[in-house]
Design a protein around this nucleic acid. Structure first.
Lengths: 212, 212, 212, 212
DNA sequence: CTCTAAACGAGACGGTACGTCCAGTCTTCGG
DNA sequence: CCGAAGACTGGACGTACCGTCTCGTTTAGAG
């Protein structure tokens, strides 16, 4: 029998006794899967990320993935969140403009990593289900929005801007433009883009004269 | 791998005479494929659109698709462009606010159809190749941007706004916020969103008092 | 080529619950595939046998076939061997002529079934690879050759013929002529052909006077 | 339009004016197709010979092939016959043994070329149609059979053998064993095989003592 | 410290779609 | 107007994953 596949008669093959002993469970396994997911995101992008490859890379069975997440979308969103768990209150530079630049730069940096790759892909997978759409929105927008809200509130308290100019739509505008740029132009996001968004859009909307 | 495929006509197979006679070619076939693509987009969305089903639906062979477009992305972009070929100069309502509302409403309507479904899916498929990213950007942004540019120029000519307030970033901001809302919230796009974008962001950026 | 296939479970696709539960594995699946292969051989012949149709007929996935056999050739050879597993020692009629007629008739009967159909097709697929050629030779010639060898040995022991006349080439000649006739003339193989081969070729070669 | 296939809009492209000008017809085209067929047989074997590749290699359209031959089989048989048109009467060495060796060596040489490659593949394609089977048999067996017949007749005339031992079956046996060996063992055919067939089978069948 | 139930790795399973190649037919256009 | 060129429909190729499942094996925790 020269050129055959393993073949049907090989059913009685020994069950491969050399399995890795310290079998991971729970948290340890979660971590391994997250790491494999992020690595795949990095190397191949969301479009080419498959449950099969993630499982293999994590040296886990596919069932262990499906036991935890119902689909690729949830896995990727979880993995991205897990990688950047820290909402970390925005730094305080003392001026509205400085704070906004810092905040947007933080978001840009986030988008340049796995979280960005995840965001891009998740968008198209998620829209059929409104609940998951909302979940994705919450995860991707919450951080930036809360940061800007806090920054603007501090500026109002400092008397730098008028509180009546602050509306949800305007708070959201800056991060939205940044995300929009990322989605349509990819990475890296030039710093001029951020400066322009702050100086030409955000500051004017809050009633500030554009920066230097 | 010694053997070629047996093939349908290795003799002993009947010659299958019932092929449709007036075989379509060129433009006629293009049209049929575009229509099938748009129908699939409509019924199943981009994520579930397959070359296989489009071919079947258009009663065409897969090779006829691949001869024209190298992948799903290009087919879908072409089909969407084909369906809405006319940038059609924006209507003139006489006021900046009216023009902007009309323009954004036009974009919103476009996004609510197959073009929107296409945009969403294309974004995640296209980013690996910068050239195709640019192409997608051109197709999806060009229209809105040019419309706003023209509207704003008319407003400047009417003396309604100051030309120095007009920058590319600000021109782009309105459509960008609308697309952003569409991507993260889907359809339908409530009209209040459009009104808010115009009144709270666009008009102020161009130095106008918000509308009524 | 940025996009992986959409896949059936990219969400928004129903989970297709109607799968047959007690899914066949191992031997049971082997049997089903063999049966489907033999049925296809019978109905459409080797030239029109495709992995696709065999899989469909066996209600199996194509991957289950390819996991077992690297190509059509191996599948068909295995299926044919499986259908006629028993070389079964040749019957003893008491005379050399009777034994030879019985043996050749047995081979002819075998060639008239799926094994013959398999042999014909396999020949053209297998010759590019010497190892597979040898395998095919072993499977198709071994049986007949061993039978004739045994029959001739018995005749020598009975003193019916002289052992010095027995050479491998002569032992092989009878079955070879029969197979040659089958390959160039197809089925059914007239019994006169068998009688002629025995009386005009085999018996004289072993130093016997031709039969009645 | 960066990364697109020729695309549907290119329909109006000039109809490829650089077509080969002196368009071949009739004999000239036949020759080109025959040559392409033989080349393909040589390089890829019958199993991998396709009408498509032959057409491309001959720089011809597929329809030009189908207009001349209804299928691969006929094309290949014609091409092989065309390449070796000369039945050439068998050489006369003066002895039966010498003539037989020469004849079988001639057949072996023929089988080692494109004609052999053709024979192998044709067998499996032809059997569904008895008429074509007969045609293939005529083409592949006629030559050898007529040669042996002539040789044996000369030997009878020389008084070397007894005419009553000559039967069609026995005349056919030698070439049949040679073709059988070729089909199951491929090329090259060792010369010992030919010597064995002559000395252990053919000569004894015609009532001659084996050669030296 | 056993004993059991759950979690785990591995991967087979029935499928869908991929992108390619080829069969044989039909249309267009050049000579 | 014939015939060469090649676009067309259709179908099989062999591969990659899907999400489910069945195996044993390993491990944690209850008795």
């Amino acid at each position: 029998m020269p050129a055959r596949a393993p073949g049907p008669g090989d059913r009685a093959a020994p069950p491969d006794d050399h399995r890795r002993r310290p079998r991971r469970r729970g948290k340890a396994l979660d971590e391994a899967i997250f790491q494999a997911t992020l690595d795949e995101l990095d190397e191949n992008g969301y479009a080419n990320l498959t449950m099969e490859r993630v499982a293999e890379r994590a040296r886990a069975g596919k069932a262990s993935l499906y036991r935890r997440w119902p689909s690729r979308v949830e896995l990727v969103m979880d993995a991205a969140s897990h990688a950047f768990p820290d909402p970390s209150s925005p730094i305080d530079t003392g001026t509205l403009r400085g704070d906004l630049l810092a905040a947007l730069r933080g978001i840009a940096q986030l988008l340049s990593g796995p979280a960005g790759e995840a965001l891009r892909g998740v968008l198209s997978d998620v829209l059929s289900d409104p609940a998951r759409t909302a979940e994705a929105r919450r995860r991707s927008q919450g951080r930036g929005r809360r940061a800007i809200e806090l920054i603007v509130r501090r500026a109002v308290e400092r008397g730098e801007i008028d509180g009546t100019a602050v509306t949800p739509r305007r708070v959201e505008a800056g991060p939205a433009l940044l995300r929009h740029h990322f989605l349509f132009n990819g990475v890296p996001i030039p710093d001029e883009v951020i400066v322009e968004i702050v100086d030409e859009v955000m500051l004017p909307l809050f009633g500030c004269a554009p920066g230097p």
